[in-house]
Nucleic acid binder design. Structure first.
Lengths: 122, 122
DNA sequence: CAAATATATGACCACATGCTCATACGTTTG
DNA sequence: CAAACGTATGAGCATGTGGTCATATATTTG
């Protein structure tokens, strides 16, 4: 069942799982799925650096390209994903597209992740 | 450069990036990489549910299998990954292997993630 | 020790992912 | 409007990933 959809997995779990053994906030699979999607967005080296760069300041695609050291196309593709996942927002400013962290949640997650990875920004 | 290693990407970034534009805690790429590895561990539906189940209590492989509704093999493979990434620890107890969250950091990340995905466990 | 139970692991496979390359789109400028 | 610049996007490709299936490895029990 390599290609099992989330719905299929959920069905199995509901068949066999005993609800009361779960923390209540783990019962809503839509929330779980949404959460994994956020973690997934943060789980790539390039995307993480993009988001990290945006914690300092909003930036254009060109700036991000220079800071992250990957091609314009690659940056753009990843920004698209981050935008679709709701982690960043974009606005046009002349020829440029300016990207911004969608909200403080993102910065918080980055900070918590870094902290738990063994580094404590003081 | 689809198969670019982290080291290659880093090299490019170091060539072109202006260090002072980055938050200091984003300069250490080993930490960034470690962080993405943690997020990656949390970014899969099955693994997230395994970890979620472990927030309530330590559990055997069989329990996790039942709770998560996936095959014993699949659970075991994912537990191996979580163990390698340092998110869970394991001890033998008779025939069973008992898995436990490695530390509070993991539970914190789960909580923060869930919270930011739109659900607030009160 | 043989059988039963619980878990781990390797080979393999379908699908996802992150990049490149080429090209299209949108905006400003001459 | 044409050229230049900045950004977005689709196709295609190599690699990674998560599962299955078969099998191996403990550990307890008769």
């Amino acid at each position: 069942m390599a290609g099992a959809t989330r719905e299929e997995k959920l069905h199995l779990a509901r068949e066999e799982g005993a609800p009361e053994e779960w923390a209540s906030y783990l019962e809503d699979d839509d929330v779980i799925y949404a959460t994994t999607q956020i973690f997934d967005a943060l789980a790539d080296y390039t995307r993480f650096r993009i988001l990290g760069a945006l914690t300092t300041s909003e930036r254009s695609v060109g700036e991000l390209q220079r800071l992250c050291g990957v091609s314009q196309s690659a940056i753009s593709h990843q920004l698209r994903l981050l935008r679709d996942r709701g982690l960043v927002t974009m606005r046009r400013e002349g020829q440029r597209s300016i990207y911004t962290l969608a909200d403080e949640h993102v910065a918080t997650l980055i900070a918590v992740g870094l902290e738990h990875a063994g580094h404590w920004p003081e």
